[in-house]
């Protein structure tokens, strides 16, 4: 960015009729504006204004460091108000556009993409597509229950993301136990792991019987934060998990079904400094609803 050229400037220099050309706005300045505008408007509109705006959007991968498929969600129809065919059509259209947009963002961002938040309504192959391109992804949040359709696709996508530090999963068709095993194998470098499996919509969990219980992951030496909100597990299984996560600093068992005492956990994992037990929040369960979801619906600002 240019500074005022104080020394060279000369009062006698002919004053040019200043041509205001938006297309020539310095790319750095345009970037600042694009960042404020957000992914949806940049992709759908700004990138189509002119060639130089397109290249700013396309050739500056930093712009796509954080991809959030939920941006602009308030502009979409309220799906819950629609019924039948109408709703299907709306969902299909929404899903297609969000998927396409995210794919382009991943294309343009490439290795600069560090955070990805996949909201509801995305096509199945989206994560695969992003994982193929965004090899430096550090944080992944998945809210759509269809994204991890089966174990292979999950292992495949996660296995490629070997820089991943944070994984947050809300709702999933795969039983929690299986997920834990896959994650233990595919992402041993994970530092923060958060599950939110609300029982009111996570039918697969209750139907799967014994296999819904938490599996025992491989040793995850890096794991510091573990949140198992709304999950079903037993004390034994939890203890085994703690054994495999020797460096755990924070454990959040809010509203999970496990029966466990503070001391049991403290003895097992001496490094834990923050511990939230299942009952801790029960009395304010309603108020906490936002808390469960609030942070998952936005990209974690702490990870840079």
């Amino acid at each position: 960015m240019s500074k005022v050229d104080v020394e060279k400037a000369h009062p006698e220099s002919p004053s040019e009729e200043s041509e205001r050309d938006w297309a020539e706005l310095h790319p750095d300045l345009l970037m600042v504006i694009f960042r404020k505008v957000g992914m949806r408007d940049v992709l759908l509109h700004a990138s189509k204004v002119c060639s130089s705006w397109r290249s700013t959007a396309r050739d500056d991968p930093i712009l796509w460091r954080r991809i959030d498929t939920l941006t602009g969600i308030q502009d979409f129809p309220d799906m819950s108000k629609l019924r039948g065919e109408e709703r299907k059509a709306a969902e299909a259209s929404y899903t297609r556009t969000v998927t396409e947009m995210t794919k382009i963002a991943a294309d343009w961002g490439g290795n600069c993409v560090e955070q990805l938040l996949i909201g509801e309504y995305c096509e199945d192959d989206l994560l695969d597509y992003v994982a193929e391109r965004a090899r430096n992804l550090k944080s992944l949040s998945v809210i759509d229950r269809n994204i991890f359709r089966n174990i292979e696709s999950m292992a495949n996508a996660l296995g490629r993301l070997n820089k991943l530090e944070e994984l947050r999963i809300v709702r999933c068709k795969i039983p929690l136990g299986t997920i834990m095993k896959v994650i233990g194998l595919a992402c041993p470098q994970l530092k923060r792991l958060k599950f939110i499996f609300p029982n009111f919509s996570g039918k697969s969990i209750t139907q799967e019987g014994i296999s819904t219980r938490l599996g025992i992951p491989n040793t995850m030496f890096q794991l510091q934060y573990l949140q198992l909100v709304f999950t079903r597990t037993t004390t034994d299984e939890l203890m085994k998990i703690l054994e495999r996560c020797p460096n755990l600093e924070m454990l959040d068992l809010r509203s999970s079904t496990v029966e466990v005492k503070n001391d049991d956990i403290r003895i097992r994992s001496s490094k834990i400094h923050t511990l939230i037990l299942p009952d801790d929040m029960l009395s304010q369960a309603r108020d906490q609803y936002d808390d469960y979801y609030g942070d998952i619906y936005k990209i974690n600002p702490l990870i840079i």
């Binding site: 759908l44 397109r54 129809p77 108000k81 396409e100 947009m101 382009i104």
Partner: peptide
């Protein structure tokens, strides 16, 4: 080439006011 580049268009979106 740029014209060819496929960027989803607004038509693919369903806007709130349509419903």
């Amino acid at each position: 080439e740029e014209e060819e580049e496929e960027i989803p268009s607004e038509n693919a979106w369903v806007w709130r006011n349509e419903f």
